[in-house]
């Protein structure tokens, strides 16, 4: 049992080559940067965070049923995203209330399930904070393909996403497919969480969505600047984070996020100084 569990948690004994891991993580950023930007504009910054918490239930379920972790995360994240969209349309509870409830409710259920089904002392650290350097080759390829598909879908709906962020009502009156674009955005975020679970972990996933975009906002004059700026911030964060993590044997997820956060502080400080 223990052995099986470790295989699940750590992946195969032979991880993907470093360049492939780097490529997969960079591909992920091509999709998280625009998705994160739109989430910020729509005041949905906590969406990624909430999904990450709720996905703990998916992880525990997958481990208990001996299924791949990514499958459990994907199913739970997509179901939660779709449920929140539907329930928010009913109007009794707003998005933030629904997200908060699902996040903590499913986190609690996930922890209970893990406590009951996993052996004592099982280490869930990498599920929470990522274990990118132990990524399997097949996982890396899946991430690259998935992230590119999501990035292309988001770019194709870009004008509607931006106009909807200005005013859903205006966009809808003009006849744009607003609800479809919003559904695409939230389901993309859920799919990205499943893809990023290995690279960033459930708890750090949200930071990949929002920190690069928030950093890029400091100098962005157009929506496209902000999304591309977020890619440009994520790039050195990923490359730097992965090299540092490998060289000093420190956790990769926190290393990547810390560098991105450094850019955020630096950019907004510089923008503030320039305004003075």
């Amino acid at each position: 049992m223990h052995e099986h569990l470790n295989e699940h948690l750590h992946g195969a004994i032979v991880p993907a080559p470093f360049w492939l891991i780097l490529l997969a993580t960079l591909a992920l950023m091509l999709a998280t940067a625009p998705a994160g930007s739109v989430l910020l504009w729509r005041r949905f910054a906590y969406f990624g965070d909430a999904l990450g918490h709720a996905a703990m239930f998916g992880v525990a379920l997958a481990l208990a049923m001996h299924l791949p972790v990514i499958a459990g995360v994907a199913v739970v994240a997509l179901v939660v995203a779709a449920t929140v969209i539907r329930m928010a349309r009913g109007g009794q509870l707003a998005h933030d209330a629904l997200l908060g409830t699902f996040a903590h409710g499913l986190l609690a259920l996930g922890l209970l399930l893990a406590f009951i089904s996993l052996p004592k002392g099982a280490d869930l650290h990498h599920v929470l904070f990522g274990d990118v350097l132990h990524m399997q080759p097949v996982e890396a390829v899946a991430i690259i393909i998935g992230a590119i598909i999501i990035a292309v879908l988001l770019w194709r709906s870009w004008n509607v996403l931006v106009l909807g962020a200005v005013s859903d009502e205006l966009a809808q009156a003009e006849g744009w497919p607003v609800q479809r674009a919003q559904m695409l955005l939230l389901l993309s975020a859920a799919a990205l969480l499943a893809l990023a679970a290995k690279a960033a972990g459930l708890l750090l996933f949200a930071s990949l969505l929002i920190i690069p975009a928030a950093a890029a906002r400091a100098f962005a004059r157009t929506p496209e600047h902000m999304a591309l700026g977020a890619v440009l911030v994520a790039l050195p964060a990923v490359i730097g984070g992965l090299f540092i993590a490998r060289a000093f044997a420190i956790p990769s997820g926190p290393a990547i996020v810390s560098i991105a956060f450094g850019f955020f502080v630096l950019f907004h400080l510089a923008a503030w100084l320039r305004r003075r």
Binding site: L40, W41, R42, R43, V162, A165, V166, S167, E169, L170, A173, E174, G175, R217, A220, R221, T222, P223, H225, M226
Partner: peptide, 16 residues
């Protein structure tokens, strides 16, 4: 359709 809604408050997070 050209439309001007009654209430619209663009968010400053969106650079536009």
């Amino acid at each position: 359709i050209g439309y001007t809604p009654q209430k619209m408050k663009p968010d400053a997070t969106l650079p536009l």
